[in-house]
Amino acid sequence: MNPILNEATTPALSNNTAKVTERYVHIEDVGMQFVTKKGTFEALKNINLSITQGEFVSIIGHSGCGKSTVLNLIAGLLQPTTGNLFCAGREIAAPGPERAVVFQNHSLLPWLSCYENVYLAVERVFGSESKVQQEARAYAALELVGLSHAVEKRPNEISGGMKQRVGIARALAMEPKVLLLDEPFGALDALTRAGLQDELMRIMQKSGATAVMVTHDVDEAVLLSDKIVMMTNGPSAGIGEILEVDLPYPRKRLELAENVQYNHLRSEVLKFLYERHAKKVA
């Protein structure tokens, strides 16, 4: 393994050939203000970020720094006060199935079975296909996350980890250009979380989709990402630093634990969060 981290060794990207793939998700001078009863609250200021196609980007920061707001802006669930967001060269004006979201609390509809929850997404995106094809897609997505045995179960009949798997299956079934994950494993216990992280890594390797994940877990960020976006504290939060993670794939949790580069990256993120941008305890 690479014993020494050298920032300069990041491979130079050919910038002429494919501008769009390089700036697949592009955030330009974005600012976000919320109007509250106490007046305007500036959540984000001067956000600039470019995400290359196929990249896995994590956004990390203390709670309340507006990292979920960034994700919601990319999803199109929020509109920025200033600036613009683009996805695949098009301006993001509204939510759309090409940017699928995995929600923190899974947000499955409790009156539908796992299969029906996934099918709802398939139906919308691939409505022009035959019913057989659509059904096959829904089953394939559930199989991908290892839930073939629980397709007919309702969300309240399965565990938290399984619910989150269905949430991921629902997002993947739409074959999105960008997968947006909002603290996807935040509500799970450590063991389940580790299992799902490995699974997600495998799935992302397979599909090659672009992904943006909001997290507050340093290990999760280093393990899964190609790039870690570290945010400063709000109000008026911005991007503090961007850390490139050039650990080779496939990444193995156990091997990485003793990897010098991994531990260096990990401590970089920790230093950012707890030294330079430590949050005062409320």
Binding site: P95, G96, V101, L120, R124, M174
Partner: peptide, 9 residues
């Protein structure tokens, strides 16, 4: 749920 509806369009 409404966010799901929005994302799924």
């Amino acid at each position: 749920y409404m966010n799901v509806a929005k994302v799924l369009n």
